[in-house]
Computed example of a mutant assay.
Amino acid sequence: MDTMDYKILKCLMSNARNKASDISKEIHLSVSAVLERIRKMEKNDIIKNYTIIVDQKKLGNDMSALMEVSLEHPKFYETFTTSIKKNPNIVSCYYLTGDFDFILKVFCRSSDHLERIHREIKSLEGVSSTKTHFVLKDVKNVYSVIPEIDE
């Protein structure tokens, strides 16, 4: 990875549909070199995936919440994470240090929908406690950090 690779990543981060020709103009590198660098970053799993970011409210998910979850014992880790991965309303799950074992990010239609999800999680084997926080507003929501590189 060099400065040009980081510049390409920043262009793709702002819009993954950027054309190689547009990236080429922005970073002053030939189109073929841009394409070659992108292919190399894909091959080396630096670029792991391309995706879209949708407006959850326009899809009917008017509520988001962060839910902290504690397990009774680490032996429940596998069954818990397998269940969480199957729930389409849980978009992120992080294993933590501290008072709680996990924090989940949940998108849902309403408070009733969140209650159903909460009951499902509470009923999973090994879940000992939860704490739920309603998200009032997304202030910042980025998915990757691209380091600043001195040229």
Results as ranks from 00 to 15, higher is better:
Arg37Leu: 05
Leu71Met: 06
Val145Asp: 14
Lys58His: 01
Val135Lys: 13
Ser111Trp: 10
Ser64Asn: 06
Asp99Ala: 06
Ser129Ile: 06
His28Pro: 00
Glu68Asn: 13
His73Leu: 07
Glu115Pro: 00
Arg39Phe: 09
Val106His: 00
Leu59Pro: 00
Arg39Gly: 11
His113Met: 10
Thr51Arg: 11
Lys86Asn: 15
Phe134Thr: 14
Leu114Lys: 03
Leu71Val: 04
Lys131Arg: 14
Val127Arg: 09
Tyr95Leu: 08
Asn18His: 04
Lys10Arg: 13
Ile27Gln: 05
Asn18Arg: 13
Ile121Thr: 02
Phe134Tyr: 15
Asn87Leu: 05
Pro147Gln: 11
Lys19Gln: 08
Leu29Gly: 02
Val34Lys: 00
Lys85Val: 02
Glu148Lys: 14
Lys131Gly: 07
Asn87Thr: 08
Ser14Ile: 09
Phe134Cys: 07
Tyr77Lys: 06
Tyr77Asn: 10
Ile53His: 03
Ser111Ile: 12
Thr81Ser: 11
Asp150Ala: 09
Leu71Glu: 01
Val139Gln: 10
Val142Trp: 12
Leu35Pro: 03
Gln56Arg: 14
Gly60Met: 08
Gly126Lys: 02
Ile8Cys: 00
Gly98Phe: 04
Arg116Gly: 07
Thr132His: 05
Cys11Leu: 14
Tyr6Ala: 15
Leu9Cys: 05
Met63Trp: 08
Asn49His: 11
Ser64Lys: 03
Asp22Pro: 00
Glu120Ala: 15
Ile146Cys: 12
